[in-house]
Design a protein around this nucleic acid. Sequence first.
RNA 1: GCGCCGAUAGCUCAAUUGGCAGAGCAUUUGACUCUUAAUCAACAGGUUCCGGGUUCAAGUCCCGGUCGGCGCACCA
Length: 467
Amino acid sequence: MTTPYNFPHDTFADEIHQRFTDLEAGGETGVTVAVAGRVMLLRVQGKLSFGTLRDSSGEIQLFALSAVTESFEDFTKLHLGDWVGVTGEVVRTRKGELSVKVATWQVLAEARHNFGDKWAGINDFDVRYRHREADLWANPESRTALASRSGVIRSLREQLWSRGFMEVETPMLNSVPSGAAARPFVTHHNAFDVDFSLRIAPELWLKRLVVGGFERIFEIGRVFRNEGVSPRHNPEFTMIELYVAYWDVYDMMRLTEEICAGAAESVLASTTLTYQERPLSFATPWARRSMADLVSEAVGEDVSVHTPRERLVTLLSERGGEANEAWGTGRLLSELFEVACEADLWEPIFVTDFPLEVSPLARRHRDDDLLTERFEVYCAGRELANGFSELTNPDEQRKRFEDQARLKAAGEDETMEIDEDYIKALEWGLPPTAGLGIGVDRLAMLIADAPNIREIIAFPTLKPLRG
RNA sequence: GCGCCGAUAGCUCAAUUGGCAGAGCAUUUGACUCUUAAUCAACAGGUUCCGGGUUCAAGUCCCGGUCGGCGCACCA
């Protein structure tokens, strides 16, 4: 079948509904429109035919009559899912349905496969994710979820632009994977004949840009971690990181809650949302509690990084956790937090005062040498964001990296590698700076009420079919 | 990576204790000038995910594999 090279489309379905909302049943307008979309339903009734056309804005009924419509017989033989371009007058049928009375029409593309049951759509996860284009047409909620994600990203950008931030881009091909503790994907550059790692975080590059003089920057981009998949983890995911010179962690907490609440407001017109049938409020200010406080409350006794190590080991093992001999009280407290607290944190909360032992890039706490000025945001039982006053001293940064190397020697799988270029950058002088990273997919899941991260990723990572 | 569960017509799903593999929608044909998941009539549609095994007989039981969902682990 040959199809036209273009179609003089001039109206969207929702525009017709808005403009002619007052038209009475049986009424005519004398207004001719050209609309295009897919035929979602077709009801042929002898010399009349009713179709439901869906475009990106919504749906409008097509009303074809043998006396009016060109090639009427062929029109009644359209297949569900076919793209058509239609011109005709806007009318309302006797039964009250606003319609385009089809004068001329043409097939813009055939649908050789159907889009699933017209009532149930497509439910099979395999089909939905492997052929997302079909899922998106068959299941409007799939489109809504991706549109919400787009709205979240747009809102974050707009909020940061309006606060004077500049958007930047940093390398995805890294010779030293840095900025987080995670296994990287490795690829090969032929001309250099060297292996590169896909980035696991843009963090160190971004701070080098602050050294270079950009005081408010952010990057929204893909990071890659060679780890398992789950309803909350995709091997490639989107992170927003931002850095502000002269700020500390407390300034950053205020910005964090503002932009997250702002994103919800922008997409949902409310900071009150429902996640998986449970109410959830993004209204600011969010709660702020130290990790030691939360753990103390959960275990029923006062604990902190200053608690004797043996006691923390006991508390951890009582909860099914297993301690590694190389772990100090900081790591133990953090493990206790994960087993005893994390899953119960529903409303967004800043968990503050992270142990220095688990925070190799964060600045030492001004009141406690074993802690850092670092927070993580938890919401709906999972981590949503991470921020801190940046460690700016190159000598201390080197020590922290060396501590990580010792951990690796002690058998820890995932630690940070020493990044000499980054240390040298710090030697040129990083001013007091606060940084923030938000898992954009996680944020989008909450705002889109998506139970699975794959719902808010257009084409999630899937295992290829074999054989 | 480990555990549990799932896969039947193009789509959504049935199939009793192991006993002829079914329905609705879609497709095809016919009827129908106001339908709204149109309706009515008829035809057609199957490697029951793949490969083995047990049995007179397997969609159903057993073994192996593929892909997916959930949980755990890793992590954000």
